[in-house]
Every structure is written in structure tokens, then in C-alpha cells.
Design a protein around this nucleic acid. Structure first.
Lengths: 176, 176
DNA sequence: AAGTTAAGTCGATAATATTGACATATTGCG
DNA sequence: CGCAATATGTCAATATTATCGACTTAACTT
């Protein structure tokens, strides 16, 4: 930028922060910040473990949702992660090749590849979970049960209907 | 996978979902899911707007934090986003070149590049904000003020001390 | 004058994602 | 049976967002 002067413009008088129009606006701005920082710090704790193993967040997400839903299909996982088949394939092949995930054809429909964690996969997922559990349970204890209940309500209110049904066990992963 | 048989293993009897060890464990698992889905759906609404303009989430994050902190330095932004200087440069140059962000040297310390949104940048940020505000305010209204308070408490308890100080205005962006 | 700090840049590389096109096996249906 | 639809996998090309290391410039500090 120091070389390419075109990037510079006349010094503006610093304006006030993004203006707040109605009463709820300030709260919405704060909520944006809350989501960014909480998610940033929540994922960061697991990232340290993943780095050791040469894996990424994508692998963690797959491990997590396979662990939570043994026998989930590839389609189910795709719907949850909202990525393309090709993108999931890379991650999934790595996990299968390294013995973290196993695949088995469905019994009724043999086109399906039912995904499960191997013992090795469970161990890794547990280790990743532990890192996040430490910080989460600390936060929960600090906040208290009433705050936790409010947290859950707001988070659920932000989610898609499909994701909600999935979480409640009243809908298939395919709709999450 | 159908060609590379090495990927297949003996069909496992489907095990139960990731086991829950103590009482708090189930809640922690649910919290993981909540964070994933809420964040996923929260970011997705803005992604649709960004796509139109050929911008990504990285640009949105920069716009957001510059809007919230007019005159923020490059270092400050780096600390918040926790990415490398080189990575931010690409995003920032795009925003400056397209007239969304302006830079001005600091008055006391002329090494600093103080970042602000241009009118065009403010308009875009507002548009992005609106998309998220719609779903967030809906969630807040649905959940009710007490739940919102709990939500805030838990989210704050998950954050780094630095991020907390930044949000409270009691610490510099550099420590977020 | 020397050292530090803030910012920018270049080149190489990695992780994660995309699109489009196509292949294979299986299922369900008329 | 033959045929369409479905579930999965794969190949190739590309985009986005990130990384690291090394280096430069300008400005501030001592």
C-alpha cells in the first residue's frame, strides 16, 4: 500500500460507529459480535488438537456428526454440513483411510453408505470434545442454569426449521 | 469408493450415539450442535447478499468491525479476526479498491492506517446487517427478553478475556 | 544513529470450498 | 424385463481463504 498510492484517499473525519436506528438495533449489533467471538473462541480450542494431527475443522465437523448419528448416510451428512459432495469426499476419504470412520452398505437399501466412528475415531472425537467441553462447561457453570436455558432458547430460535427437527429427533438429518 | 475397495470395512453393528459420561456431557453435546447450527444459519443469510457482489465472509467480517470501530488500525483488525496480515491485505485491498473502505494516516502516529467505511461501505454493511437483523430480531422476539439475557451471559462466558474487554469498551481491539 | 513498530509486499503453499461432467450400483416402477 | 430415479463416487479445473517466510518502507522511540 505504501507503494501503490491509489489505495489512499483523503483523510476522512472519523465518523461515529455504525449508527443505531431503532432500539433493537444496538442489541442486534452486539449479538453479531457475541456470535463472532464466541464461535471464534469455541472453535479455536479444538483447532489446537486438530493441528497436531494434521486435520482441519472440516474433519472435526464430520467426526462430530457421525459420532452423534451413527449410521448416518452421506446425504445426511451433506445436508447438515451444507457443502458439496466433492468437498465432503476429500474429508471423508481422509478419515476412512486413517481409520477414524468406517462405512457399511445399508441393509434395506444397499446404495447407502452408513457411516460410523471406529474405536480410533471415537477416541479422537472424544479428545476433541474434551477440549471444547472444558471451556463450555466452565461457561455454563459461570453463567448459571437459568442463563443456559435462555441461551438454548435463543440459539434454537435462530436455527432453520429443519435443523430444529433434526436436533429434536423429530426430523431426518437430510432436512437439517 | 466403489472402485477402491480398500475404503470398505466389515459392516459394524451400529453403535449407540457418542456416549454420555456424566450429566453435563449430554448438555455439552447439545451445546456443540446449537453453536454449529445457529452460526451456520446466521452466516448463511448474509452469504446470499455477498454472493451477488462477489464478496465473501472475510469481506463481511472486515466491513462489520471497521463499521463498529471507525478509525481502527490494521493491527486492531488483525487481532480481532485472528488472521495473518497477508490474508487481511487481500480482503482489505479489495474493499479499498472497490470504494467500500478508506484509509487515512494517523494524526499522532503517522505509521497507522486508520480504517473507516465510506458511504458506499456503510450502505453495503447496512444491507448485510439488515439480512442478519431480520432473523436475529425474530429470534430475540420469539425467545423473550429473559432468554436473551441468558444468551448474552453464556456467550460472554465463552469468550476470551481480551474479546470481553473489547466488547465492553474497556480494552483495545488489539487484545481482542 | 540504532532499534522498534506498523504496515505493506512477494512468492509459495495449504485447506476448504466450488462447478461441471460423468461413472457405478441399486432401487422402484410400469 | 427395461428404464428412470437415486445414492454415491470420481475426475478435472478453479476459487476463496488461509498459511509461512522473507523482505521493504516509513515512522516512531531511545
Amino acid at each position: 500500500m505504501l507503494k501503490t498510492k491509489s489505495h489512499f484517499v483523503a483523510p476522512p473525519k472519523l465518523p461515529p460507529p455504525t449508527p443505531v436506528v431503532d432500539v433493537g438495533d444496538a442489541e442486534m449489533r452486539i449479538a453479531q459480535d457475541l456470535l463472532f467471538f464466541a464461535y471464534r473462541d469455541f472453535t479455536n480450542v479444538a483447532d489446537r488438537v486438530l493441528e497436531e494431527l494434521g486435520l482441519g475443522r472440516a474433519h472435526h465437523r464430520a467426526l462430530h456428526f457421525i459420532g452423534r448419528n451413527p449410521g448416518i448416510t452421506v446425504s445426511g451428512l451433506l445436508a447438515i454440513l451444507r457443502i458439496t459432495k466433492q468437498s465432503l469426499a476429500r474429508v471423508l476419504n481422509a478419515l476412512v483411510d486413517q481409520g477414524f470412520v468406517s462405512q457399511a452398505p445399508g441393509y434395506e437399501d444397499r446404495r447407502l453408505r452408513l457411516l460410523t466412528l471406529t474405536e480410533k475415531g471415537k477416541a479422537l472425537e472424544q479428545r476433541l470434545f474434551d477440549s471444547q467441553r472444558k471451556m463450555l462447561s466452565m461457561a455454563y457453570r459461570t453463567a448459571g442454569p437459568q442463563a443456559v436455558q435462555g441461551f438454548r432458547i435463543v440459539m434454537r430460535a435462530m436455527m432453520d426449521k429443519g435443523a430444529l427437527a433434526y436436533m429434536d429427533g423429530t426430523g431426518p438429518a437430510e432436512d437439517a
